[in-house]
Design a protein around this nucleic acid. Structure first.
Length: 279
DNA sequence: AACAAGACCTGCATGC
DNA sequence: TGCATGCAGGTCTTGT
């Protein structure tokens, strides 16, 4: 489910609730997540104080005093929910519960593609999850030039390249389609051919769609909820994603003649695009 | 090295 | 209604 804007929405809520708090009680209801939780997971967290809550790509990083960083990934169906004590009864697929003062944070993940892990601070940068990640698209150093460098020589499709976390970190199926639409680039185009001004246009499109989505609280299709339980609203602003056969925004052509937005499958994943605007 | 395809796990929408 | 099927926003591994 969650791509960069959804994880960022979660990060902000968790940061507000937990920054400066001490973790008073940690309970793992099941240990067999995608990456099995260590036996001493709870013990290593209890008593630690939260320094800051950060994000890298789609990973949430809870920096603590002491040795470890709590790393979380929401996979496809993961959710973080925040409650005030007394928290309601735990639900099915609530795998981990963390109490901090009068707050309770619960990690719920039906499909168990998500993970929680403890990584020692000094091992974080070199860890396999982080060492080969591409640039943060909302960072100041993510420019057209930087993107062009990373796409150069790639013979795969632009769609597949933008899904690759080593090229740009944090995009997923939804925002890749939306960004290519904003940039007017075909998903089938050879990735390495996007250079110069086109790469600049694409970098700006990626930034603009991510910023707009974060401002809307992310997109709620099935799974994503903000930790407060509120939904996100960006799904109402999709130009192409999930809109096969519908007109794209600002389109003046006759939908009966053009067929509207097209869906195609690339690498087993659906891609949505407007053939007229994304030649 | 780059790339494609399959695996992982569960829930839900769809169609019969 | 019940059942089978296919599909879902991500990442990792394997094989070419």
């Amino acid at each position: 489910m969650p791509e960069l804007p959804e994880v960022e929405t979660v990060r902000r809520a968790v940061a507000r609730a937990l920054s400066g708090q001490r973790l008073t009680r940690v309970h793992a209801r099941r240990h067999d997540l995608r990456v099995p939780l260590p036996r001493d997971f709870a013990r290593r967290l209890e008593g630690r104080r939260v320094r800051k809550v950060a994000r890298r790509a789609k990973f949430l990083l809870v920096h603590l005093d002491g040795r470890d960083v709590l790393v979380a990934h929401l996979g496809m169906s993961g959710r973080m929910r925040l409650f005030r004590k007394p928290a309601p009864r735990a639900e099915r697929h609530d795998h981990v519960e963390i109490e901090a003062g009068r707050r309770v944070l619960r990690f719920n993940d039906p499909r168990r593609f998500g993970l929680m892990a403890l990584v020692p601070k000094d091992k974080l940068a070199g860890h396999k999850w982080f060492r080969s990640l591409g640039p943060e698209p909302l960072g100041a150093d993510f420019t057209g030039r930087r993107l062009a460098e990373r796409l150069k020589g790639r013979r795969t499709s632009l769609k597949a390249a933008l899904m690759d976390q080593r090229i740009v970190a944090g995009l997923g199926n939804i925002y890749v389609s939306e960004a290519m639409f904003r940039a007017g680039l075909s998903p089938r185009r050879r990735a390495g051919s996007v250079q110069g001004a086109l790469a600049g246009k694409l970098a700006r499109a990626i930034k603009s769609v991510l910023r707009a989505a974060i401002a809307a609280g992310g997109s709620t299709l099935r799974d994503h909820r903000r930790p407060s339980g509120e939904i996100g609203y960006f799904q109402h602003r999709f130009a192409v994603y999930g809109r096969e056969g519908k007109p794209c925004p600002g389109c003046t052509c006759d939908i009966k003649k053009t067929g509207g937005i097209k869906r195609l499958v690339q690498g087993g994943r659906a891609t949505f695009y407007c053939p007229r605007k994304q030649g």
